[in-house]
């Protein structure tokens, strides 16, 4: 097991280097530098432009800039935003809870509904339910997030008026962030001062629900399909026949003897969805004006805010890698054959 962890860890360093090189290169390939973008349409005095670039250290040759960047990283310095002058790390930690809340809600939605649908589809294989789940999940998987988000907004927000169109909370509420999770903060605030903050929690929930569904749709589809096929495979195993021949109840056969083994590949897929989720968060946050990391990065790109783009993406990539790493270890724990491998 230790060796297993060690082997996985050793792949991380090249991965990190790759990410730094990619973000560093890609953002500089987009035409326009931070100063030009800031000034916009107005004509820019070349002398002032050069001065500003020099001040930001952007006049150095690219390899030198990259070396500076890596040196800073090694010192644990993520730099500061060229626009706001705030440290990248601080901006990240301020905005991250919003994304985490959205991603968590989306993942809970995707895992709960996906597992359930997948299990039932497998048990009722060939039934209308099975065909329905598979059809919907195929659609869900290939649905453009942008379009799907807008459809939901048009229907539930605009036509039915059930949910708000954007943001995390109605402007009428003034809630001090404690955990950064609006659902928790609003609940705490409502409990502390019921008269001023009446309905804050429900309002936060209403804001969260559509973005979470939109963001959770693709993972949901993937999880449902994977669960179904994995269940079907395990249901054919000899040991499931043995379990039935033991006279165990169908519930025991399904949940103890089938699902447990079927979950192993599903777990990996869930881990991989964290990456998809971060990608989806960028779009979802933009559609719903959700003040999180995704929106932050999009804004940073359009402003050519190099440090924010480079380090923001690096932090997000690190997170994804760490999560996949944890999933790998969980995978090992769930599967005794790996756990015991030397």
């Amino acid at each position: 097991m230790l060796l297993f962890i060690f082997r996985r860890l050793s792949v991380l360093i090249p991965t990190f280097l790759g990410v730094t090189l990619l973000t560093f290169g890609l953002i500089r390939m987009i035409p326009g530098d931070p100063i030009e973008v800031m000034v916009g349409e107005r004509t820019l005095d070349p002398v002032m432009h050069a001065e500003a670039m020099h001040r930001l250290g952007l006049d150095k040759p690219l390899p030198a800039q990259y070396a500076d960047y890596l040196t800073n990283l090694l010192h644990g310095n993520f730099g500061e935003s060229l626009i706001t002058r705030d440290s990248v790390w601080h901006e990240f930690t301020t905005l991250f809870p919003a994304t985490l809340e959205l991603a968590t809600a989306a993942m809970i939605f995707a895992v709960v509904v996906g597992l359930l649908a997948g299990v039932v589809a497998a048990i009722k294989r060939g039934s209308i339910f099975d065909h329905g789940v598979m059809g919907i999940s195929l659609t869900g998987f290939s649905m453009p997030i942008f379009w799907w988000g807008l459809i939901l907004i048009m229907f539930f927000s605009v036509k039915l008026g059930w949910t708000p169109v954007s943001g995390r909370l109605d402007l009428a509420y003034d809630i001090t962030p404690r955990t950064g999770f609006m659902l928790i903060d609003s609940w705490l605030a409502e409990r502390a001062d019921p008269s001023a903050n009446a309905g804050a929690f429900v309002d936060a929930l209403k804001h969260l629900i559509l973005p979470a569904i939109v963001l959770g749709t693709i993972p949901l589809a993937v999880i449902a399909r994977m669960t179904r096929s994995s269940m079907l495979e395990v249901l054919r195993e000899d040991y499931v026949r043995t379990a039935r021949a033991k006279g165990l109840s169908p519930a025991r056969v399904i949940f103890i003897h089938t699902l447990r083994n079927a979950l192993i590949p599903v777990l990996t897929v869930i881990g991989l969805q964290v990456g998809t989720l971060m990608g989806g968060a960028v779009l979802t946050e933009t559609i719903f004006s959700w003040p999180g990391i995704g929106k932050w990065l999009i804004d940073a790109i359009s402003r050519r805010d190099y440090p924010v783009v480079q380090n923001g993406i690096l932090i997000v990539a690190t997170l994804i890698i760490v999560v996949n790493f944890i999933v790998d270890i969980l995978y090992g724990i769930a599967n005794p054959r790996i756990r015991h491998a030397k």
């Binding site: 195993e237 000899d238 040991y239 026949r241 043995t242 379990a243 021949a245 033991k246 006279g247 165990l248 003897h257 447990r260 083994n261 769930a334 599967n335 005794p336 054959r337």
Partner: peptide
Amino acid sequence: GKDIAMIFQDPMTSLNPS
């Protein structure tokens, strides 16, 4: 499983690995 029990051909796959 109680009064009528059955054993199968391939013991290596007849037990649940988990």
